[in-house]
Simulated scan of single mutants.
Amino acid sequence: MKLIDCPRDAMQGWPTFIPTAQKINYLNTLLRVGFDTLDFGSFVSPKAIPQLADTAEVLDGLELSSTTTKLLAIVANLRGAETAAQYPQIRYIGFPLSVSETFQQRNTNKSIAQALDEVARTQELCARTGQEQVVYLSMGFGNLYGDPWSPEVLGEFTQKLDILGVRIVALSDTIGASVPETIAPPFRELTAAFPHIEFGAHLHTTPSSWHEKVQAAYGAGCRRFDGALGGYGGCPMASDKLTGNMPTEQLIDFSVEVGAKLPLNELALDEAKKLNQAIFAAH
């Protein structure tokens, strides 16, 4: 079982700017915890996400010599991928590709066909730099727009990504629509049809529904999970009516439940939890 902590997703929509030095301190603590991967920042237009305009500066401050955790940066287009490719410290370049035509247009002002072309060009870029692309299939568990969704649709997208050579695909719960009935069938079918691809789950949840969602994905063969400490991202986990990121703490609890041994530094994790609360309570 792999844990990917996503402070980038927790911070990106935060209404007040988190100082760069504070981000660096928090991320360096997370790097000491022992997560497989840290989704630490993004290279997108500062107009779109001003909170992460300092990603390059943050990267310069990260202590990478003594960590086994790999870095992942999110991009929204080929230009962002070309920027991320300039930093060999970044192992993974994450690209969101929507299975909903409506959302693809709203999110990136591109069609799915245009976005797929950029995925292909990003894959070629990664082949040259030695980095690896992670494609997030957003609206992976359904959408509000009436666009086609089914495990078969997800399979068609994955087939196209497979041909391009993409080897990590994460189904993403963009709007908090996931329920066990829409989580388990796609993972069951995709892991069987594409055993050479690593499938991940980027789930959103309310406090009461996290376990059933993780169990559905895990039981259907998923072993890669995204989370964010405190469940921040989208909406903070303030009440059962709100839908935020899957809390990393609960993914850790689940790993213990299923007997997955994760090499985590508990002292660093406790420190990260304290910093997490200080950051999001103060801003």
Rank of each mutant, 00 (worst) to 15 (best):
L31A: 09
L31N: 04
L31P: 05
R32C: 12
R32N: 14
V33A: 07
V33T: 07
V33Q: 06
V33C: 13
V33I: 07
G34V: 09
G34E: 10
F35R: 14
F35Q: 15
T37L: 07
L38C: 09
L38K: 02
D39K: 02
D39E: 14
F40M: 02
F40I: 02
S42P: 10
S42D: 11
F43V: 04
S45C: 01
P46V: 00
P46K: 13
P46F: 01
K47I: 11
K47Q: 15
A48R: 11
I49G: 03
P50C: 04
Q51S: 13
Q51W: 00
L52G: 12
L52A: 10
A53I: 14
D54L: 03
T55P: 12
T55V: 09
T55L: 08
A56N: 00
A56E: 05
A56H: 07
A56S: 03
E57R: 05
V58A: 07
L59Y: 09
L59K: 07
D60C: 01
D60V: 01
G61N: 09
L62C: 09
E63Y: 05
E63R: 15
E63Q: 14
E63N: 11
L64K: 11
S65L: 08
S65K: 08
S65V: 05
S65I: 08
S65E: 10
S66C: 04
T67F: 13
T67M: 14
T67Q: 11
T68L: 15
T68N: 14
T68Y: 01
T68S: 15
T69P: 03
T69W: 03
T69Y: 03
K70S: 13
L71A: 00
L72Y: 01
L72H: 00
L72A: 15
L72F: 01
I74V: 14
V75D: 05
V75R: 09
A76D: 04
A76I: 08
A76N: 12
A76G: 13
A76K: 10
G80Q: 11
G80N: 04
A81V: 01
A81Q: 10
A81F: 08
T83C: 06
A84Y: 10
A85N: 13
Q86G: 12
Q86H: 07
Q86I: 04
Y87A: 06
Y87V: 00
Y87G: 09
P88D: 15
P88Q: 15
Q89T: 08
Q89M: 13
Q89P: 12
I90C: 01
I90H: 03
I90R: 00
R91E: 14
Y92L: 13
Y92M: 10
Y92Q: 05
I93Y: 10
G94A: 14
G94D: 08
F95H: 08
P96R: 09
P96H: 04
P96K: 08
P96I: 03
S98Q: 11
S98N: 10
S98D: 10
S98W: 12
V99G: 03
V99F: 08
V99L: 04
E101T: 07
E101Y: 02
T102R: 06
T102A: 07
T102G: 06
T102I: 12
F103W: 14
F103A: 01
Q104S: 11
Q104K: 05
Q104C: 13
Q105N: 15
R106D: 10
R106W: 03
N107Y: 09
N107R: 04
N107D: 02
T108D: 04
T108F: 04
T108R: 03
T108I: 01
T108Q: 14
N109F: 15
K110W: 00
K110E: 02
K110N: 08
I112S: 00
I112L: 00
I112W: 02
